[in-house]
Nucleic acid binder design. Sequence first.
DNA 1: TAGATTACCGCAAACGTTTGCGGGTTAATT
DNA 2: AATTAACCCGCAAACGTTTGCGGTAATCTA
Lengths: 343, 343
Amino acid sequence: MKKRQTVTLKHIAEALNLSISTVSRSLKNHKDISKETIALVHAKAKELNYFPNIFAQGFRKHRTHLIGVVVPNLTHYYSSTILEAILEEAEKKGYHVIITGSKDSYDKQIELLNTMLHLGVDGILLSLTRDTYNVDKIIKYIEQVPLILFDKVSRKVPCTQVIIDDEQAAFNAVKHLIDTGRKRIAIFKETNDSFNSLKRYEGYLRALKTNNLPFDESLVYSSKYIPLEQGRKLAETVLKNPQRPDAVFCITDNCAVGAMQVFKKNNIKIPEEIAIVGFSNSLASRIVNPNLTTVDQPGSKVGKTAINYLIDEIDNPKENYMDYKTVEIKTNLIVRESSIKND
Amino acid sequence: MKKRQTVTLKHIAEALNLSISTVSRSLKNHKDISKETIALVHAKAKELNYFPNIFAQGFRKHRTHLIGVVVPNLTHYYSSTILEAILEEAEKKGYHVIITGSKDSYDKQIELLNTMLHLGVDGILLSLTRDTYNVDKIIKYIEQVPLILFDKVSRKVPCTQVIIDDEQAAFNAVKHLIDTGRKRIAIFKETNDSFNSLKRYEGYLRALKTNNLPFDESLVYSSKYIPLEQGRKLAETVLKNPQRPDAVFCITDNCAVGAMQVFKKNNIKIPEEIAIVGFSNSLASRIVNPNLTTVDQPGSKVGKTAINYLIDEIDNPKENYMDYKTVEIKTNLIVRESSIKND
DNA sequence: TAGATTACCGCAAACGTTTGCGGGTTAATT
DNA sequence: AATTAACCCGCAAACGTTTGCGGTAATCTA
């Protein structure tokens, strides 16, 4: 019981009266080996159900075909779609993925990167914790192993980064509100902006400017984090604003949902009196009533792109920082009921 | 660049003028080594930032400290909470986790189990695909590597299984409806029942029986899968029922949400005219209006329990099938607005 | 004081794979 | 016919760790 069959090169060699080295080379179609021998070995390997011992290989070649992933959280729908894509794509390319969660703790994040390194992963996919202000340690890792950032990134880290076009997405969302006649457009964002929040804010500003709408600071609502509850709180402060906005662009779906709850409870008609736009195309956005207009973030594309860049980098080590680039994945505005006057 | 520091036992040995074997033994506090030497070696190891090469170790010891996880899907909220707990608990115990997704395909599932085996994982955590009717191949794996089932399981597989108390949970949910005065309670379930669906149906039946309510077959609504859209469809057929139910127990939150949408659209008051209870305590259940009464499945507890049983089994290999057991995690009914008359 | 323990430690083999090097055929070239 | 080239294959070392076995010196027993 619990006996693992373990057929090695040696078994094949003995069965075929060949040397271990010839068998090894045959299996990788080395040119020194005749076609007949190669065919023979492949056949026998299949017959015996041979699989290379990954540890002997990794031990020998310093190549593990393991990829480490460090993310702050994996219960968010967006995170999990990214992860799913990473897994799928990795498998296609013959890699395996070790996922870990930093629980949004910087120290844990560093610890996990350390673990990854000593685990011998071929490369690392990292989504930064919220409190990654100092990136010195992260940079140390870049010098030791191919690493690319995705989703939550920082421009201070010199490596390839895969993100969505936050600025443009926000611009489009706000432009949509303007196009549908809104004049006083508020924004719900983070107080000390994360990279994403900042970019979305910039998009908001650009949309106002491009369309000659005045910037009104009283329409900028911020809170430290932006979960559902904060959306509620911000919405309540909105109610106190003497000059109430006629639209709110929320930086996340969750806070948009929270805001909607408050507005609805106060009998403010959505979208007639106030239009709402979120960001994420979360499940909730499709469930809430009225359905939420939101920005769709193609998580699977982000994941797929990230791992492909990583594998490329593993295969072709970069020589200097100049070779790194930032890849922006295009998003789509999904217009639903929360932003357009009913039929 | 991309140079990994790699300090081995040899380096420590040379620095201390000891043999490699002595160093190796010192690091595991072998009794043959004097306390002084052990202290010395530990100090030097720390100084040089030594970490054992996991591949050399795994290669030598046939122990990888890797655990493989195979799940049908990881974007579901419930799945991801389980996974997160697995990761956290594994890390505490010094294991690493390789997660893969079978995309609910039986063939892919088998393929992944194969991969896991050849990857040399110490054990496997498996949640079955919906179409796992034949478990012969799964049983083959049990003979080769410690494996335990969680969430989606099958009694036909002789191994430890970690699940929630579906039957009791359903019983409690339906009893709640009965206690609040409902007489004609419908159920939305799967046509050809999965293990979970079946158990929940049994709980439904037992609740009716225990409370002397007649069983009415016209109140049993089934469809192949139970996503949100099917909840809508089933709800529409409910509307056609001349003797409309006054409550619906939905086997998943998603289909409950779908049902609510339809009922609301038809101006049927929830919960006054019809009460709804779901199953999952999903994010949606808290967002939908009215909030959905639902069964909370403690995913983190399921994950934690599952991996702890697995690690235990890795450490103490079972000798026969009798040693396996089924662990049921208790659930909680969360009563919200969708099932109780408003204040 | 001789013999027997005990406490420490090193030698070397083993795990399965890859790969540089060298050797032996056979066929092609001069 | 002799040289060369092309082709095919095996030997053995190496990767870093663990561990059975054996050895030495110190300590103990009688």
